Simulated assay, not measured.
Amino acid sequence: MTERKWTARAAWLVRRLGLRHALRTAAAAVATLALVTALALPQGYWAVVTAVIVMQANLGGSIWASWTRLAGTAIGAVAGALAAHWGGQSFLAVGLAVFATLSVCAVISRLRESSRVAGITAVIVILAGHPGTSALTMGMDRFIEISIGIVTALGVSAVVLPSRASRALEHGLATVFDDAASYFALVVEGRLHDDYVERQVFAIKDRILRTLARCRELRRESVIEGRGGDDGTLRSMLLYRGERLFEHILAMDHVAAEWRGQGLHRHLPEELTVLEGAVAAMLRGLAAHMRRQGALPETDTLSAAVGKAREKLAAMRRERAPAAYDLSEVMHFFSFMHGMLSCAADAGEIVRRIRAYEQEA
């Protein structure tokens, strides 16, 4: 095996096993421990715990986790300090501090993720106090320790094997287009050959849903990283088009799952087969291009397939072929065809947008 293949295989193994994230998290923990040891912080382990918690798979995720944890910690520290000042370590003080902390986090939607951290901080400030140490000092100590952990984690995330949400988003979108191609082909084949494979369809549909949800998170994190501008606009367009594609195929899926047997589709099996292959090939070529594994696909074959399908539909109307079927069959057929043509239009538009962007860049 050549050196290049060994390097590619090692890189794939690192990504597959999450070794990069593990190494970066370990580096953040060690760096934080060294810092709190040098500063002689009495409870510096809170900084180390924080560094491990806020270290995410990419810089944008780390920034988001850091901001929410820092804000939650501040709220919990203030609530805990006030409750301890007025109520000591009583049951009432703990209850009021936790209630107030979680209420504030619930009202501020962006802090809901940090509500548990905020509540824990409030409890620690009250119950972990020492004689002669004021609640305000306890709260300030916890806030400083956690801030040290956050800052160290962010520094390591930006320097040690940095990973960007924008690049992860591109890979996620490529996966969406790849899976959309498979989903599209499964649905069309299921309708053409009356062989709808429910288990396979469900699995790929679930995978696309989860990938799209992760892509939305990555889009937010890429904005936090400051990766906006024209690149950000292009990625937003790709995510929007990916969601539209999925919606079109879902509508086709409903028809394929519920409407079996002979129908209007038997009048144009060749055109539908060619259109299916053209759309699937376009989406797979697009995914490969986004992974830097191939050139941007041409739209000529797709345009020709769409043209032939539209010509056949027009001929069917002239021959009044739909008149031989009941209204339900006609509605299902044209709904299915609308979905196929919409997928073709979206695939072509995505390629044209990317080509225009790359030519201007």
Rank of each mutant, 00 (worst) to 15 (best):
H338L: 11
P269R: 13
R9C: 03
A29T: 12
D194L: 12
G139P: 07
I75F: 09
I249A: 00
T133K: 04
L341I: 07
L264K: 04
A97N: 05
I120G: 08
R214L: 14
S328I: 11
A118Y: 10
M138A: 11
D194N: 15
R235K: 05
G294C: 07
F91E: 09
T233M: 08
F333Y: 15
R24E: 03
M290E: 01
M340D: 02
R353S: 15
G261D: 08
T137N: 10
A345R: 15
A180C: 07
T7F: 13
F177I: 01
G72N: 06
V306Y: 06
V159M: 12
A77D: 14
V14P: 00
R15N: 06
P269K: 13
A47Q: 04
V107H: 14
S222G: 02
G88R: 09
D253H: 04
G348E: 12
T73I: 08
G119N: 10
M1N: 02
L272D: 07
A74W: 08
H85I: 08
A31H: 02
D253S: 07
G76Q: 05
E271K: 13
A280R: 01
S147D: 08
Q293S: 08
R199H: 09
E358F: 09
G339A: 09
A11Q: 04
D326G: 13
T73N: 14
M252T: 00
L82S: 12
G88Q: 08
G232L: 01
R164K: 14
V107A: 14
A314G: 07
A309R: 06
H265W: 14
E189I: 00
A74I: 10
A309K: 01
G119W: 15
G307V: 09
T101C: 07
L212P: 01
S103Y: 15
S328T: 13
M138L: 14
E271G: 10
E271Q: 15
Y196W: 05
F99Y: 08
R310H: 13
K308L: 10
A40W: 08
G155P: 02
G95W: 10
A309T: 15
A11K: 02
A345H: 14
S342N: 12
S342D: 15
G18D: 03
A65Q: 12
E225N: 02
R292C: 07
G285Q: 03
R310P: 05
L96T: 10
R310C: 09
F99R: 00
R291G: 02
G277L: 11
I126H: 11
R164Q: 14
V30N: 02
R167M: 09
I108F: 15
E113M: 12
L250N: 05
D141W: 09
E329W: 06
M337V: 15
L275S: 11
S303F: 13
G285S: 05
F246W: 04
L212Q: 05
L173K: 00
M340Y: 04
G172M: 04
L23K: 00
N58A: 11
V197S: 01
R110T: 13
C215R: 01
D179C: 02
T2D: 12
V54Q: 13
V125E: 11
A180G: 01
K5S: 11
A251T: 12
L212E: 05
C343V: 03
P322E: 10
C105P: 06
H338M: 06
G72V: 10
W46A: 04
V98P: 03
A97L: 07
R112Y: 09
E225Y: 04
L70A: 15
R167S: 11
G226W: 04
H130M: 06
M1Y: 06
R216F: 06
S166Y: 00
R112V: 09
